[in-house]
Nucleic acid binder design. Structure first.
Length: 322
DNA sequence: CGTTTTTGACCCGCGC
DNA sequence: GCGCGGGTCAAAAACG
């Protein structure tokens, strides 16, 4: 979110803040906020598509100029992301790592997959699953998975409820120093057999953003999502939504913004899981990721009325007049 | 009446 | 040793 703001301040359109970050220029990707127009600009038409061939020379030049501009903005944002990411990693203090290493001594269930249930569950009627991130700890005997999920909520909503498909029991609430809004502590309802805990707190910067931090992994299926894949697997399977990339100011986390469509999980990485940006980019550039991304983009675009309208208009132009 | 939530007290690690 | 702050406990209250 901050990055998006920064991008706007820097005069960049959020349109180009896409997943082509760190990838080859041909990599597909777009923000959910991307308009149909830009979407067509970002990518050359597929083979056999006759749309561009019907454009006038002026239109072609305009489009080309626009493409150049978008590419330039993309490049600048890529650099910005890399810079911010590096800064965030550098800011990781020894304190925080010590704290997390202490956490890692807590009981954890590492035997099964990442059982974090979020994504399709979602909060409120509006499925506005905004940001996810994952933290993993290594270097100790045991390993506890820490996942951060941000959900867009109504600022007036005072309940710290994140409907993620699992049942939770609240066991405490505390006002923390760095945030005026209270932090709620939840344990999985299947405790003590399931050791997962979560902390939920509004973002200090954006009260409409609810930040849930999950610790540990569920050792049971979600009561409401039985049969579905756990987060990490589903993220790859369903594919990440075309999304903007932001950097969570609260920590060294690269987040993927699902603000618009919230249509599924997303592979998320942070400093602990992705030691450097290169690794992150390699992951994003993987064939599976790309395939899932293309699939998700197609689904997203077909849901976008602007896109369908533009497509219909383009098709209409190609129809012979009778 | 059983379950869940609330909330003040308590515990523990850390820095000074 | 003391204070601070985050995390947890557990009794009381609220809820269905």
């Amino acid at each position: 979110m901050l990055l998006m703001d920064s991008a706007r301040r820097a005069g960049c359109s959020p349109v180009c803040l896409d997943l082509s970050v760190g990838l080859s220029p041909s990599s597909p990707g777009s923000s959910p906020e991307t308009t149909a127009d830009t979407e067509r600009l970002d990518r050359p038409p597929a083979a056999g598509c006759r749309v561009t061939s019907s454009l006038s020379e002026d239109q072609a030049k305009t489009l080309e100029a626009r493409l150049t501009q978008v590419s330039e903005e993309n490049r600048r944002l890529t650099e910005m992301i890399a810079y911010l990411y590096a800064s965030q990693v550098a800011r990781q203090s020894p304190d925080s790592s010590r704290k997390r290493s202490r956490d890692s001594l807590e009981p954890s269930n590492s035997s099964d997959a990442n059982g974090n249930g979020n994504g399709s569950g979602n909060t409120k009627a509006e499925p506005d699953h905004a940001v996810e991130s994952a933290l993993s700890d290594e270097g100790t005997c045991r390993r506890i998975k820490v996942t951060r999920v941000c959900t867009r909520i109504d600022p007036a909503d005072t309940t710290l409820a994140v409907k993620d498909g699992y049942q939770w029991r609240k066991y405490g609430q505390k006002v923390t120093r760095d945030n005026p809004s209270p932090r709620a502590y939840f344990r999985c309802a299947y405790a003590p057999s399931c050791p997962v805990k979560k902390k939920v707190q509004r973002s200090a910067e954006d009260s409409s953003l609810l930040v849930a931090t999950y610790e540990g992994e569920h050792n049971h299926p979600s009561p409401t999502r039985a049969g579905e894949l756990p987060i990490a697997a589903s993220a790859t399977a369903s594919g990440p939504v075309p999304c903007s990339i932001s950097i969570n100011s609260s920590g060294p986390t690269i987040t993927l913004d699902l603000t618009k469509n919230g249509g599924g999980g997303v592979r998320v990485l942070d400093a602990a899981e992705a030691p450097d940006l290169k690794k992150l980019c390699q992951e994003i550039a993987s064939p599976d990721f790309r395939t899932a991304l293309v699939d998700q983009m197609a689904r997203s675009l077909t849901k976008d009325p602007k896109f369908t309208d533009a497509l219909a208009a383009a098709i209409l132009q190609q129809l012979p007049e009778y």
